[in-house]
Design a protein around this nucleic acid. Structure first.
Lengths: 379, 379
DNA sequence: AGCACTCATGAATCGGAAA
DNA sequence: ATTTCCGATTCATGAGTGC
């Protein structure tokens, strides 16, 4: 359980409703097959799904490094499918259940490599999901191509999709921009592969062959969920999703059928410390610059009513009025944004960058005055 | 025409064969629909196909920047498809023709974004192609997400595939490693989007909405073709593929139906200067050292029959015999590679790096002697 | 403690020609 | 088709060891 109250419980799980499906098994691992387990969950009940399905690698023989050592590949049965057809059927089955379980404003993330991601992406689209982005996880330290026969396979792909073209969804734009040093977060992310202390081992052997780095889930949950949201991971493995969800004050549900993985996941998540509420609030909307109305600059005498603003090329002129509205030469009146759009005959306009004031014979955007005001007034 | 002789003409185009299909229209643009044009080309006749198909963007309304300027999105008629079904049918049709036209040891490259690449990738696999890598083109200067509703879409994806799982293909490993500062070339490439002098414009308006940077094609052609190879681009546009192919001494065939694009492409390619043969040779196989048999070192007295080699830790010993074979202490006999594998009980071994000789009390790999020999004998 | 060095290892569709 | 043999081939990171 995270530290944040679960205030967004699905209605279907509330007491006293006529239909009384199972309440959501929050913050716990469901044992068993992922499709069967998802069928038992109520419709429109989770805010986000993160899925790391089998990749269907279809590896051939053994592979040795140039120094003769053996490469420990993914040979687990859960990654084996008889054919692309079988893999497609499996993929469509679990993606369809996921669509049913997702709230209408929920989103899904799926990770894969070139072996399977095209099957997954096509199924996602066919099932009516609407792809919002695909994201490239660039591995800082990938395994080389030992035989020198191809390019080093140095990335994996994630697909982020909403339930449909018109569906709403959560995207914490400010959090991402802050995380990326005040530049928009791009669709290519770099992380090291999971190793070191984070990599779960038992008797020196990795517990799970494909454990994902927590940094990856951290960014995803921070970007696309709110505190208290419910995150489902149908291929839970050793519980990276659960551990990060708990740290970030999100609820989680895992589905897993291998007892070894479940045991490791439970121990790991129990040890994950939730961040305190104030830290979460900070991350939710960090450094969100306080909004300044244009009128405040007038009130504070940064600009004087009656003064004239122009665009950068002095094609358009407008007079400042006492309430912070503008009056153009042609008689139109409006806010800095509205009037900027009107005079340009454009559908929209950012008045802060469009309108300029004159100072020492030079034109500067009024946004510069806003910055000056912020610097003078912020603690 | 590149400067390199076309020595790999398809046999079907040779004179005097019973079946006399059209000879390949090398270094020219075929006017018309890409599927129809491909049907007229002979089977197994081209070495590589680069395809930049319509992206099926299905943009809704118009898009404006925050400053009100219009974003010239891809709204041309050729990029509209009624549905995913139509797009899939189109994709499978041209990919099937491409498969027929490709030589058995040829490869195909297709570029796309999340709007279409999953359709393309699934079709590629369904048609029997074997994906070798997917490559991420990270745009150094992508267009921001103006509305702040998603991650900046900062990459496009390329799929590289052979004709089948067992098919051979060209991959100039050394060229790529050299190009990447002596590290293996990874699957994530960074280039700026096409702009500046390279961007074709007419009356200040860009001729083609999605002109690809030449650097992208340069790397692809350098990696996966040989001088004189025939490269087909079924969505030729303004001819980036042709311009780079000519510079690199490859032959090219373009298919395009828009006369405006054809005119721009022809002018552009005519201005592209082919590199001279020596420059191409260097890039083709840089530092490709001639092979030296171990026995040659013995013949030339770099090592003496009867001398003893060991591994780096002196765990294993072997005596050099007059014919260049080795005799281990336990009585096994074999080549430097074979005996190295035998004594280590390993499936394979590079004898050049495994076996060491002693010089001034220090051990050095016998590969050092090979280098010395090469330096002494190469002009 | 700190540095230098060795060694292990990670979602991998990983050879090809001659006999 | 199968086998044999030759020869080409790795980057970043962390843990462990030794000085």
């Amino acid at each position: 359980m995270g530290v944040i109250e679960k205030i967004r419980q699905p209605r279907v799980a509330a007491r006293g409703t006529v239909a009384t499906p199972e309440p959501l098994p929050l913050d716990s691992i469901i044992r068993g097959d992922c499709i069967a387990a998802m069928r038992a969950l109520p419709a429109k009940s989770v805010d986000m799904i993160f899925a790391d399905p089998p990749y269907n690698l279809q590896l051939g023989g053994e592979l040795f490094r140039p120094d003769g050592t053996h490469v420990d590949a993914v040979t687990d049965d859960w990654d084996k499918f008889d054919s692309l057809k079988h893999y497609d059927a499996f993929t469509r089955a679990w993606l369809a259940e996921a669509h049913r379980i997702l709230k209408d404003d929920g989103t899904i993330w799926v990770i894969g490599s070139y072996h399977n991601i095209y099957r997954v992406g096509a199924a996602v689209q066919d099932l009516g999901y609407w792809i919002l982005n695909d994201i490239v996880w660039r591995k800082a330290n990938p395994m080389p191509n030992f035989r020198g026969t191809r390019f080093t396979n140095a990335h994996e792909t994630l697909i982020w999709a909403s339930k449909g073209e018109k569906a709403k969804y959560t995207f914490n734009y400010r959090s991402m921009k802050t995380l990326n040093d005040e530049l928009q977060m791009r669709s290519d992310w770099e992380f090291p592969i999971c190793g070191g202390q984070e990599r779960l081992k038992r008797d020196g052997v990795k517990v799970h062959p494909t454990q994902k780095p927590e940094a990856l889930l951290y960014r995803i949950l921070l970007a696309c969920t709110k505190p208290g949201d419910v995150v489902l991971d149908p291929f839970f493995g050793t519980g990276t999703t659960g551990a990060v969800a708990r740290r970030l004050g999100r609820s989680w549900i895992g589905i897993e059928r291998e007892e070894d993985y479940i045991a490791a996941a439970e121990q790991r998540i129990a040890a994950a410390l939730p961040l305190d509420e104030s830290a979460l609030a900070t991350m939710q909307s960090p450094r969100a610059a306080p909004k300044v109305a244009f009128g405040v600059l007038v009130e504070n005498a940064y600009l004087t009513p009656g003064a004239v603003l122009t665009d950068a090329k002095r094609r358009f002129r407008a007079t400042i009025r006492a309430d912070g509205s503008l009056l153009s030469d042609c008689g139109a009146i409006g806010s800095i944004h509205k009037l900027g759009a009107t005079v340009q005959n454009a559908p929209a306009c950012n008045g802060w960058s469009f309108w300029h004031y004159e100072s020492d014979g030079k034109l500067a955007p009024i946004d510069a005055l806003r910055q000056t005001y912020l610097l003078a007034t912020q603690p």
